[in-house]
Design a protein around this nucleic acid. Structure first.
Lengths: 229, 229
DNA sequence: AAGCGTTGTCACAATACCGTCAATCAACTG
DNA sequence: CAGTTGATTGACGGTATTGTGACAACGCTT
């Protein structure tokens, strides 16, 4: 079993439904943070980013769409999957929900089983790292929970950006990622970063993970990008 | 500066939807050209043929069906896959769309994921390399995702142009390609490259893929071109 | 407020790679 | 067998692409 449970943030203002969902998520082994309040949800999410967010469309303080949009603005949260709960007949809203960046939606009424299944699917798709635990490529390992990186057992200190960059690589081992892909994936899709900055961060990451010795695990693919593996 | 990212042409006049789709396609690694205008779409498509076209049924200037028909008239574009976006209740049109040569259709409302999945399916059919499938001819294999080429299991280093050239060959196994075809296919339609340059790159590619031993897999067809197989 | 680590950007250095050419070679023609 | 046409090859200079060090701005911690 997994030592660390994936954390969910549930934003739902119907107490009965909330309780039911908390119960069924916990039965699946998730740790659940719950709030009925959109503002509070934003606070929680930015402070301790959860591994996924379940967001009811109809909540009191803020509309679900607004919460969703604000969440997506944070680069830290840009890749956290969001599932929206919509009532029947909110088809219009559903579309707009997807536009603002929700990964999936579930229409009420639904069975808890259906929701957990969707959640599992979304998590598997978007964050393979979170489904399993620490990722490993040869002697390089990254623990996303503890925020630690080791090479050949020896701890490696990385800056936040370097860490995210490495995690991005390790979630896609062997794949060549273009500078543009890395910019949107690591810095966020609305970032106005120079593409050459990727080069510099790659250089820094390289220096860090090669500092303990061993081959250079990042491959430069000329006129294409970089890949790890 | 020719990257190997597959290029899409998105013809959609709803700005919100267009933006969403551009975002999600780019997240999947596509390069996206976008226009709300059918006429302009035709221009773009004929000048720089994309790898696939996403076409909304309801656009302003021309009906989607007309755009589709005109696109199909160009021999250059005859094999480019077209996916139509239709609103619910346009069943009639959907059928006529398929009749006029669309490869697939997606009914609104749809999730971006659904569309990218359909697109991937269509691309897999028509351009295996772009869908990320590794291609193989005898003991020669090319992995477009990892940007790797192997002969008899042994890795082969290729320059960017050599790589694109080989990929172009492997997508058309056994076919004799003229120098002119290779120039436009590998260097781009607006390239002012000497045709003799093709010879040189073929020589370099030959040297590379034969360096591990084995027969010469590139056949010279005098006064016609080259073929791989 | 000062100190520290991190980060984005720039300018320049170091390459890898590419296109062209001219000479050579091979293939077809009569 | 010459003669002609087309293909191969090695060399070379130019250019596009990447690596690198420096630096100023920023945010955190003390």
């Amino acid at each position: 079993m997994n030592t660390m449970a994936p954390t969910l943030l549930l934003v739902e203002d119907d107490p009965a439904l909330a309780e039911l969902l908390v119960w069924s998520f916990e039965a699946e082994g998730y740790k659940v943070l719950q709030t009925p309040d959109g503002e509070e949800a934003l606070l929680i999410a930015t402070e301790t980013p959860p591994d996924a967010i379940i967001l009811d469309w109809m909540i009191e303080q803020l509309s679900g769409i607004e919460v969703c949009r604000r969440l997506r603005r944070h680069p830290e949260l840009a890749s956290v999957p969001i599932i929206m709960l919509t009532a029947r007949g909110e088809e219009e809203d559903r579309i707009r929900g997807l536009e603002t960046g929700a990964d999936d939606y579930v229409t009420k009424p639904f069975s808890p089983r259906e929701l957990t299944a969707r959640l599992a699917a979304v998590m598997r798709r978007t964050r393979p790292a979170l489904a399993g635990q620490t990722m490993r490529i040869e002697d390089l390992e990254l623990d996303p929970v503890a925020h630690r990186v080791r090479r050949d057992g020896k701890e490696i200190a990385l800056g936040p950006t370097e860490f995210r960059l490495l995690q991005h690589f390790m979630e896609r081992p062997g794949r060549v990622l273009s500078r543009a892909q890395l910019v949107t994936g690591v810095w966020g899709h609305d970032s106005d970063i120079e593409e050459r900055t990727v080069d510099v961060q790659v250089k820094r990451l390289r220096a860090a993970i090669n500092s303990t010795g061993g081959r250079d695990m990042i491959r430069t693919v000329r006129s294409a990008g970089y890949s790890l593996g």
